[in-house]
Design a protein around this nucleic acid. Sequence first.
DNA 1: AGTACAGTTGAATACTCGCTCAACTGTAAG
DNA 2: CTTACAGTTGAGCGAGTATTCAACTGTACT
Lengths: 125, 125
Amino acid sequence: MAQSADRLGRYLEDELGSCCDEDVQQRLTELESLGEGLHGLDVLSALANETRYRLVRALVATDGELCVCELNALSDVSESGLSHALSKLADAGLVASRTEGRWKHYRATTRAVALVTVLDGTFDE
Amino acid sequence: MAQSADRLGRYLEDELGSCCDEDVQQRLTELESLGEGLHGLDVLSALANETRYRLVRALVATDGELCVCELNALSDVSESGLSHALSKLADAGLVASRTEGRWKHYRATTRAVALVTVLDGTFDE
DNA sequence: AGTACAGTTGAATACTCGCTCAACTGTAAG
DNA sequence: CTTACAGTTGAGCGAGTATTCAACTGTACT
């Protein structure tokens, strides 16, 4: 860390013309405050996996509900793996479920819809 | 796969009252078409890591450029690790860079801004 | 020329995470 | 009450990934 502060000092000197230790210290605290807020990392982690991403995309595309047994048809993992995947997605608030008898239905949340939509949108430019 | 088709058949029978093999087959192909389109998975993978996510958030929050040496201050990895991280982000189209002398400046792309914004937005509800 | 520094690259290591297997819960039907 | 089925849970293994170390490129300054 002392190393990187040195380099930052040299950089600020380049930028400002002159630079004292206090300038470096101030900039350091400014920068550290930028690094806060890891809100959303768990959501991204949940989505950043082929199996889970496919499930979410399918649910978003369906614009409704799909039964676990239907989701099974479009994922190439075991039934157990599918359950794990859906559980992780539910924890991240990307899918919600409804049980009916012994069948369980999943649907995409608005969060999932928003993310997939934005993600697709950034490829059209 | 034969197993899951069986289960799907039983499910469709429950839903439709009756169900023949052709119904199952048709539903299967419908479902498989939903699983297409992995566009964006690499972007998510790039973002779904604490180090890289913090870098992107910082760049988005700054609404401008940051020097590598400044980014170094808010990431707790080595200088080399930082370089690897930025490289992966650049590959995913989440950051862009500009070299000036021996200093290199990074900025968030519109894709990064869009994603972070949407992600934050889904927590306010 | 040579030295110092900003940043990158590739290989090796350590670690996380996704998947499967087996055992389990809960629901419906004979 | 027993059997069959839908789905979940936890442990353990294998594969992918994040990080570091060392060597490198390119730029400025003397």
